[in-house]
Design a protein around this nucleic acid. Sequence first.
DNA 1: GTTCTAGAAC
DNA 2: GTTCTAGAAC
Length: 254
Amino acid sequence: MVNELYPYIVQFEEEAKSPGLETHRKRKRSGNSDSIERDAAQEAESGAGLESGSSPSQCSLPPKKEKDASAKKESLGHWSQGLKISMQDPQMQVYKDEQVVVIKDKYPKARHHWLVLPWASISNLKALTRDHLELLKHMHSVGERVIADFAGSSELCFRLGYHAVPSMSHIHLHVISQDFDSPCLKNKKHWNSFNTEYFLESQAVIKMVKEAGRVTVRDGMSELLKLPLRCHECQQLLPSIPQLKDHLSKHWTK
DNA sequence: GTTCTAGAAC
DNA sequence: GTTCTAGAAC
């Protein structure tokens, strides 16, 4: 069943097991993507290491150290900026209009998992004002439109909402089916980010912006990600991710 | 966000 | 001995 639903992911995992390709992956990872500044910083770092090694009595820090820190700042190639890249890629776009674009989550945590993103650059929930009210409503209705168009005939339930403290930049509305049947759902953080108050209902966010003029996320959200694993359907506690996943399958109709 | 893996938990 | 988690690295 899983193979039928996620053929591309299964294929990828099988490829990863091949020793030759594994080597290729590692080589590619160590050599690619990061900025020229980063490489320069690494060279500077190793250079500094050699210097201090050859003359251990010298303790003064070279001015290079500050340069390293600034070079490490988020560049466009940083993983947290990935959504900005993906949303521009026509091949990723499931839907788009003048205000928003919808893409499939690259690592879906359920059978259906989309992200609705505004074209406007809104970094996170804290940046929202009443000026965004209509946009937020539109994002929600587009999410419902996508569900109807791509999963309308299924009997799956969906939730629409935002992570309280997202890892990826650029505000994005999660549209996710409630089966949580996916090989990409692998750990407690994944589960709790969609099944505790860490997941802020789209409607609640809209209401908050409407009534308070902004979204306030109270402190300690990260602690929610460490809560024990509890089934969202029957509230049963499960001791591990594999056991949770096995349990979840009992709630599926197929 | 993911991957990788040491060592905790079983 | 194997499974699984959690934290570092990317």
